[in-house]
Simulated assay, not measured.
Amino acid sequence: MPVLPVDRTLRQRHHGFSLLELLVVISIIAVATAGASLALRDNANATLEREGARLAALLEAGRAQSRASGVPVRWQSMAGGFRFEGLPENQLPSQWLSASTHVRGDDQLLLGPEPLIAPQGITLVNTEAPQSALRIATDGLRPFAVQTTTP
């Protein structure tokens, strides 16, 4: 068997990437792109969802306190926040988490003291994303819950 010179074996080497190396690089790029898209989630919608869930819980807390004390409680939206009329001051929060949150339409809810209340709700919007809105509503028997709406 003849021995090949060293410089001839170097000339036969292939230059470029193998298919496996290209697949690995493409996979890494796909994972990085997916992570970046999840990290860049729409913050205005996430803020609105947090506000809606928080307000639904606060309305249920106000409703429970109204039933326990037998005192009528009214929730009312104000500039920059809201208030629970009929409850002691500072018992429940009165500010939005974000200054861009506002109530659209009706701005008052009657929370009790009766176990059954009239069906009612409010619509929250975020001025940074006015195309999305959340409705917090009850049918009078069930607790307040967040419902997605379209303007």
Rank of each mutant, 00 (worst) to 15 (best):
A30Y: 02
L55G: 03
V31A: 11
I29R: 00
F84L: 12
A64V: 10
L116C: 06
P113H: 02
L4K: 06
V24C: 06
G81W: 00
S18A: 12
T127E: 04
R135S: 07
V125A: 11
L22W: 01
F82V: 05
R63I: 10
P151Q: 11
L10D: 01
D107V: 04
I28N: 05
R104M: 03
E60A: 02
A118M: 13
V31I: 14
L19K: 06
G52E: 12
L92K: 04
T33D: 02
A99P: 14
I122T: 03
E21C: 03
R67M: 15
S132G: 03
L55M: 15
H14D: 13
E51H: 00
F17A: 14
T150Q: 13
E85K: 07
L87T: 00
Q95W: 08
A30G: 08
E51Y: 01
A32V: 15
P2Y: 08
P143H: 05
H15A: 15
P143N: 02
R50D: 04
S132I: 14
G121D: 13
R135E: 11
R63K: 15
S132W: 01
F82G: 04
S18T: 13
G62R: 07
G80V: 03
W96E: 00
L38I: 05
A64D: 14
V103K: 08
S98V: 04
R74S: 08
P72L: 01
G16K: 05
Q65H: 01
R8L: 14
S77C: 09
I28A: 15
S132H: 10
H14A: 14
L124E: 01
A57P: 03
T150C: 06
A53R: 12
S37W: 09
H102F: 07
V125K: 10
Q147D: 13
W96F: 04
L141Q: 15
P130M: 06
S37T: 11
R135I: 02
A34K: 07
L19M: 13
E89T: 12
V6G: 09
G105T: 08
P72T: 01
Q76P: 04
L23Q: 04
R41L: 09
G62E: 13
A46C: 03
T150F: 11
R104H: 00
L40Q: 13
Q12F: 08
A53I: 03
D106M: 04
Q95D: 12
A68N: 07
P93D: 08
R63C: 09
N45S: 14
Q131N: 14
